[in-house]
Computed example of a mutant assay.
Amino acid sequence: MRCIGKFQCGTAHCISSSARCDGHMDCEHGEDELSCVRVSGKSSVLQVRTEGVWRTVCSDDWDPDLGSSYIDSLMNHNKTECSSGKVITLKCLECGSRPQFSTRIVGGNLSQEGQFPWQVSLHIQHKHLCGGSIVTARWILTAAHCVYGFSFPQLWMVLVGLTEQPVNEAEYLPVEKIIYHSRYRPRRLDYDIALLKLVEPLTFNEVPYPTCPAQVEPLMPCGVCCAPGEASMSLHSAQVPLISAKVCSQPEVYQGYISPGMICAGYLEGGTDSCQGDSGGPLGCEGNSVWKLVGATSWGQGCAERNKPGVYTRITHALTWIHRQMEVSTTWWQEL
Rank of each mutant, 00 (worst) to 15 (best):
G5W: 14
A12S: 08
C14T: 08
S16D: 11
G23S: 03
G23N: 04
H24I: 04
M25Q: 08
D26F: 05
D26W: 10
E28H: 03
E28W: 11
E31G: 02
S35F: 15
V45W: 02
V45N: 04
V45R: 13
V45F: 07
V45A: 14
Q47F: 07
D60M: 02
D60L: 03
P64R: 03
G67M: 11
I71M: 12
I71T: 13
M75N: 09
N76F: 01
H77Y: 13
H77A: 06
K86H: 15
L90N: 03
E94S: 10
C95P: 08
C95E: 01
G96N: 14
R98Q: 14
P99E: 09
R104L: 08
G114D: 04
L122K: 05
L129N: 05
L129F: 14
G132W: 04
W139N: 11
I140K: 06
V147P: 02
V147C: 01
L155Y: 08
L155C: 00
M157T: 02
V158K: 10
L162V: 07
N168T: 12
V175C: 11
V175N: 04
H181D: 01
R187W: 14
K197D: 04
L198I: 07
L198C: 03
T203Q: 11
F204G: 00
V207H: 00
Y209A: 01
T211S: 14
P213R: 15
P221M: 06
P228V: 04
M233Q: 09
S234G: 02
H236Y: 15
S237M: 12
V240E: 05
L242E: 13
K246D: 12
C248F: 13
Q250E: 11
Y257E: 08
M262D: 02
A265Y: 06
A265S: 05
L268P: 05
L268A: 01
G271L: 07
Q276N: 06
G277S: 07
D278L: 00
P282T: 02
G284I: 04
L293I: 04
W299T: 03
Q301I: 13
C303V: 05
E305N: 11
K308T: 03
P309R: 15
L319G: 00
H323G: 08
E327Y: 07
Q334H: 10
L336M: 15
L336K: 15
